[in-house]
Computed example of a mutant assay.
Amino acid sequence: MTGTADTSERIAKFLARAGVASRREVERMIEGGRVKVDGKTLDTPAFKVTGTEMIEVDGKRVEPPAATKLWRYHKPDGLVTTHADPEGRETVFDAIPKDIGRVISIGRLDLTSEGLLLLTNDGALARALELPSTGWTRRYRARAFGSISESALKILRAGVTVEGIKYGPMEVEVERETGSNIWLEIGIREGKNREVRKALDAVGLRVNRLIRIAYGPFQLGQLEKGEIKSVPSRVLHDQCGHLIEMGETPTGQAIAKPRAPSRPPRKPGQKPGQRPAGRAMGGPGQPGRPKREIDDSLLEPTQKGRPLDAKSTRARRDKDGKPTAKPAPRPSGPKGSAPKGSRNDGPRGGSGRPGGPRKPGGRS
């Protein structure tokens, strides 16, 4: 009897992939009675769906998850990173174009912060990229009132505790000082709430402008304020493919690099450890490095299709640079004698290079 593959998944994961919210937020929605499946209000996040059901959140039908997408957005200051602000302030999701569909942010930028904000339609990916175990560094440029000493820099680089909250080591570099302000470039890996502001405040600096310039491999670049640009699918797969395919929280383990191409099988008659003919012409034979092709015009008709090594190719040229069928025979003679035409008695082998007896004491 052949079994059928189970294509169902938990409702929280399904809604996260559909871009409704992160799994944790979906679980809270279910607890609040906001999620229905085929007209029945759910009371547990363990419920499984296949996507063929009619799934509703707050009375609105949720479409099946689309292909995972990622956007870079230059958030201006003055916008709140939330879907609904109780104070009625304008949000990031009010400002972005409606035609990109429902998206969620990867992390947040507070009201007065600006710069790079990543948006995605995949809640599971958003959750994975927010975790410190992903290992991505968030980079900022901070302008702060005051000056900073070397001892304060060491404190920030070692990690600081503020009001009982421990912030991890920061990468801090002084960019420049302008009057009573100082510009710093800062890198953090955790991204706790208002982390940069609180850490700098602990060493006597009051941040008055904060710009995020990078989130992992993704850069703010030349994006204008309020501009949004889709990340190409190839780049998304290269940088986040392992997280998209996992669909789960990353473990923090290193990502395995692709294996190098395996060595080609030995040709008939080739001994173990012996280099294949022509390898010297192709460079050191590093994996993935293309070999140089030998021009057939340099070979005799009887030799075409047979690879030659570099030494024999050089030997099969006469003094005018034309190929010869065989290399010129070496002069023979008794040991210790130097026949006429050797390197100690004039031009070397007819090549036109000047020669002569060596001077006593070695090379000239």
Rank of each mutant, 00 (worst) to 15 (best):
G288D: 08
K225M: 05
S105R: 09
E114C: 04
P307C: 06
T2A: 11
A328L: 14
I155L: 12
G282P: 01
T137A: 13
Q222P: 05
V160K: 06
Q222F: 08
G226D: 09
W136A: 09
G88C: 13
L42W: 01
K326Q: 13
G164H: 02
D110L: 09
P250D: 04
P268S: 09
V62R: 03
S262L: 13
V20W: 03
A280C: 09
G3N: 03
I148M: 10
L109A: 08
E150V: 12
E195N: 10
L236A: 04
P301V: 01
S105D: 04
M246V: 00
L308N: 06
L184Q: 00
V160I: 15
G350F: 02
A199D: 02
Q239P: 06
A95L: 03
A158F: 01
H74P: 08
E56Y: 05
K229A: 14
A12S: 15
G336A: 01
K13W: 03
Q239K: 14
G278F: 09
D295C: 05
R34Q: 13
L119V: 03
V231G: 06
K154G: 11
L42Y: 05
L70K: 00
R212F: 06
R28A: 14
L308P: 04
F14A: 03
G204N: 06
R102C: 03
R234N: 13
K225Y: 03
T2R: 13
S364F: 07
S364P: 11
L111V: 14
K98P: 13
S230D: 07
L200F: 07
A144E: 04
L153P: 00
P290K: 14
K271F: 04
I213T: 15
E175Y: 04
P307M: 07
L116C: 12
